[in-house]
Design a protein around this nucleic acid. Structure first.
Lengths: 196, 196, 196, 196
DNA sequence: TGGTAATCGAGACGGTACGTCCCGTCTTAAG
DNA sequence: CTTAAGACGGGACGTACCGTCTCGATTACCA
């Protein structure tokens, strides 16, 4: 006889409500900004009770961390063309597409703001965003180094953060566009910075 | 043309109250974060009435824009050593000092967050921060270009934003330190990126 | 006419749950008062699901009407000593005992309060309480009248309500005690009021 | 130089809001009963913020104690005709009028219910209602005793509570009317009960 | 004696109201 | 005319319960 794990004899999380809440959060943050996105409005938009939100997320940041992850699914950013320049160009273009199409930027800015005074938000953001991004970009650059495209003393770690940094900077100031041409300029600059 | 001078000389803006409010804003934002820094708490901490705050600043962002400007007086960042590397190193070290000693990062993150959905905040931030920083860094790099330290096709504009970007990135994720060594790595990378 | 008897005889009302709920209701009302006695708390105390309560009682007042009836079983108040004074004294003493030992007063006050705005509660209370009490006291006084203990023009109906009234008044203000001595004073006063 | 008492340098209670709240409380309790009379609904009806209610009354019972006092101004019940019967008849008729015209009964029942589990409500109710009523009725009967209308061993204290009791009983069961005829029956019964 | 349907505990759900905090406006009396 | 104080109408907070619902598990009759 085989144990099948814990037996749950009670009603479980409603898929419908869960999805409605995530969608409503996106809609409301788009209309009223991060600070203006109230749990009250999200619940009303989603057609759920407030308690249903609080039951599954301890606070607004936790909800929006999940919303952000759903919007900017960075797992889909992996590329491998055989050239650092092309990899960077492709990956950044794809990333820019996400930011252009979604409310990810507004949410990101709000989360960064909250992270300044809430350690748990900072931790979650670091793990789900910084480390993931470092990993993705690190792989591209490491492969380039192995192929001999980069200088032996290249500061890869710094390059990785510089890419993230310039994107944030442009993204959160939303003046100049994040487009394929900009991706190309970044790739060029980074390659020069990593060459001998 | 004749200057008539002030006519209504009764009880004008109280210097004491003004300063107390700015100081209280810093103190409160340090304790409760940007979102948690309420006008109510600032007024109470400053020992003023709420109305005195609303009389002189239209809203929280306006107040914190002034607080930020007072903390991070970027006018004091001008340097001119005769070498791009030394200029960068010096300027960044000085800037990092400001961020290390003050609540500027928390405030900056809050303002960026609000800028996502409030155009006036975005505008003010752009003028008082991005353009100023671009001007300062632009001067350093332009002088270097004139001296022939940089490649003729160097993407100076991008380099300038990259420097701002990496600083924000590190600053707002507050994990790895912003110190003189890091300033050096940035300077090195940028110089390589701008060379032939 | 043919009785078909029960058709659906599967899984009937759980005696254990029923009793546990009544006991829990008494316990909770004792701790938190009538308004504070929530179905949620009663279910938790009884160790049942909320639905089990709602299955058998339409609302809180219905539940507490049953609880009150179980506590203050007025059927046990019948007496017949052969003297109005002794009957009254005995019956009231017995009644006071119930009120002294149980949470009946708290529940009664809550039901009266709800009866002000809910006709069905008012009706139930009238039938199960006022009429029953009038009947019991009425019998005592009628027997006295037949025996010639009372004046021929005695206002028996008013006397009956006066007895109920003074008890409520004392009971719900819970300052002065409801004891045998008090029962005696009531009996004396009523007898005088009903004499010539 | 004369001290003029404490100097209050701040905004004071709004008469308009205060009155609007009391009136709204009456209106809402009339529509939804005591338990159903929510602070939220009262504030909305009064056109005030909820906080304005909570600023001046700690809870619902405190508010309704004031409302009850305003409705049933028992100070206006004093009478002195020279005869106990006439005094009682007049006073009760006047009191019945108040109860017939206002929501006093619903409020009273709610307060009595809350008094069962909240000592402060019980205390307030006792002082503002029971003692006041005892005093008023006590005076009528005492004067009668001095005039020799009553027996020397008359149980005046009990008579007083009996009058209050019978009124509550009729009032809160709201079946039979509280009218002048009923006032007469009470007066007669009480007089008999207090005679030799 | 096994099938089966109502009942059970548990608790998620859409709601309403709670009592609190803060918003931005206002009123007051003192300077 | 500004100030400190703080009341005001309003909106959102996060929590407690409402009464309804769904979910396996249990129960106890009936075939």
């Amino acid at each position: 006889m085989v144990s099948h794990g814990p037996v749950l004899t009670h009603a479980r999380r409603s898929v419908r409500a869960h999805e409605a809440i995530l969608e409503a959060a996106v809609a409301v943050v788009g209309q009223h900004g991060y600070i203006g996105a109230t749990i009250e409005a999200i619940a009303a938009t989603a057609g759920t009770g407030k308690q249903t939100i609080y039951r599954w997320w301890p606070n607004k940041s936790a909800l929006f961390l999940e919303v952000y992850a759903a919007l900017a699914n960075e797992a889909e950013l992996t590329v491998n063309t055989g050239s650092v320049r092309d990899d960077l160009q492709a990956m950044l273009s794809r990333l820019f597409g996400v930011y252009a199409r979604t409310e990810a930027a507004i949410i990101l800015a709000g989360l960064i703001s909250e992270a300044q005074s809430k350690t748990d938000v900072a931790d979650a953001l670091y793990v789900s965003l910084v480390e993931r991004r470092r990993h993705l970009l690190g792989e591209i650059l490491s492969r380039g180094a192995e192929r001999g495209e980069l200088a032996s003393d290249a500061d890869i770690d710094l390059a990785v953060d510089m890419i993230s940094g310039i994107i944030w900077f442009r993204l959160l100031l939303h003046r100049d566009p994040l487009d394929a041409r900009f991706a190309g300029r970044i790739a060029d600059f980074i390659l020069r910075g990593l060459s001998a």
